[in-house]
Amino acid sequence: MRILLAEDDSLLGDGLRAGLRQLGFLVDWVRDGEAAERELRAQPYTAAVLDLGLPRKGGLEVLAAIRAARITTPVLVLTARDTVPDRILGLDMGADDYVVKPVDLHELAARLRALVRRAHGQPQECLTAQDVVLDPASRTVRKADVAIALSNREFALLQAFMLSAGRVLSREQLEQQLYSWGQEVDSNAIEVHIHNLRRKLGNTLIHTVRGVGYTLMRDAPAP
């Protein structure tokens, strides 16, 4: 899951980025409101963590601008403003969650996962397709109740597929979900990861749509 983190405080931003990475998120960090809005408009982030007191453009303004532009990326507002009117205003402006600093990293991660889940219309924490179950919290994958070991990239790729089960994803879309800024993308990396996933989870899960991309089928195709 690729997250945009907008936080102007260097120590807190650094800590959140490192912590969310440890918990399996890909994190892009911007330090001002204008950059946050630019990145949210440019990339399909899974979710965004937005501070309200951002320089150049306030968090609420960013929120209003992206919602006006019909960008539906789930946004978690992380702020020190703790009064009830502030919370109400934040949620009414289009925030999906409102968290007051300081926050436990694990709680922040859980809230982000919940946001993403809700955004994809999934009530359960675990993602399921055929006999494969992916648990984002414990970062484990089981096939027919047998634990399968996946690399970080494989896990992220499978998660992206499962969140958009039944939809065809292009290679560019998958790359955007898989790599944060400054990470080298091999030209055939996606193919390699998909090959590995098929090897570990079977051939019925991920299908190639030639010339378009790949899709994950929630139910096994009829034999």
Binding site: D9, L11, L12, D14, G15, L16, A18, G19, Q22, G53, T79, A80, R81, D82, T83, V100, K101, P102, V103, D104, L105, H106
Partner: peptide, 25 residues
Amino acid sequence: TADASHELRTPIAAIQAQAQVALAE
């Protein structure tokens, strides 16, 4: 009070996040 809460919370949030990162790293 509102400003002070903001200014005090941010460094504390940073300390908490960094400490949790250190613990898990």
